[in-house]
Amino acid sequence: MTLLTARALTLRIGDRPLCTGLDFALERGQFWALLGANGIGKTTLLHALAGLRGAEGGIVAMEGRDVREWPGRTLARQRGVLFQDSQDTFPGTVFETALAGCHPHLPFWALEGAREFESAVRALQAAELGGMGARRIDTLSGGERRRLAIAALLVQDPLLWLLDEPANHLDLRHQVGMLAHIVSRVRERNGALIMALHDVNMALRHCTHAALMIDAATILCGSMQEILNAENLERMYRCPVRRIVNGDGREFYFPD
């Protein structure tokens, strides 16, 4: 079933086109990697897909309805966004920050109750932040803060996850662990995921599909087998890329 579609999507910042006439469909059960060079517009595209910014042309539709027309809280129960960085002007506690994820699930007058508290505790444990609930978030390390943002997203529990460089600041173990946890969570709900990444091998490990942003007019979309190859990667990153196949058949890409 199609969850999210983009039709003839055109995005511009100022006069600079980031994508022109993109057609794209994201089905339930799919895991997409959004790859591209620095500054090519991965974040802007993710924001447009999430309905956080309007499009200069075309339309993004969630379950057939324009994302910009969805009521905010209803949309927030459908899709969750992990941003590249977090702003903490008046830092609260770790627990409060995770709990914020339940906002779309509660009417505005309601206070969080036992169910929300429990969900936040479980999310914190999944993010390996158990026992840190009372800490102020400005005392966390970069990686811990990142895991907390993911925990808040686990509390939000959306169907479609849009992640902007989810592995930022995470150590090797957490890069693998956090993403594996998210992927299993998405599978459980038969949801979908799209994440902007720089690590091609991580995309290979977790994703079924990829969108390669080469330039505004050329965004290659398709299954991993179809479009992820050394030739396309070289074209996209404009540097030589080598493909290595492991003994167990898994493939890896490295700069040559």
Binding site: L52, G72, T74, F83, Q87, F90, A100, G101, Q156
Partner: peptide
């Protein structure tokens, strides 16, 4: 009545919008 929205707004307008704040 806007309390939870205010808490989210402190984390930035995009973050608040992503969680459903108008």
């Amino acid at each position: 009545a806007m309390g939870r929205s205010l808490n989210l707004l402190v984390h930035g307008e995009l973050q608040a919008a992503a969680l459903g704040v108008s």
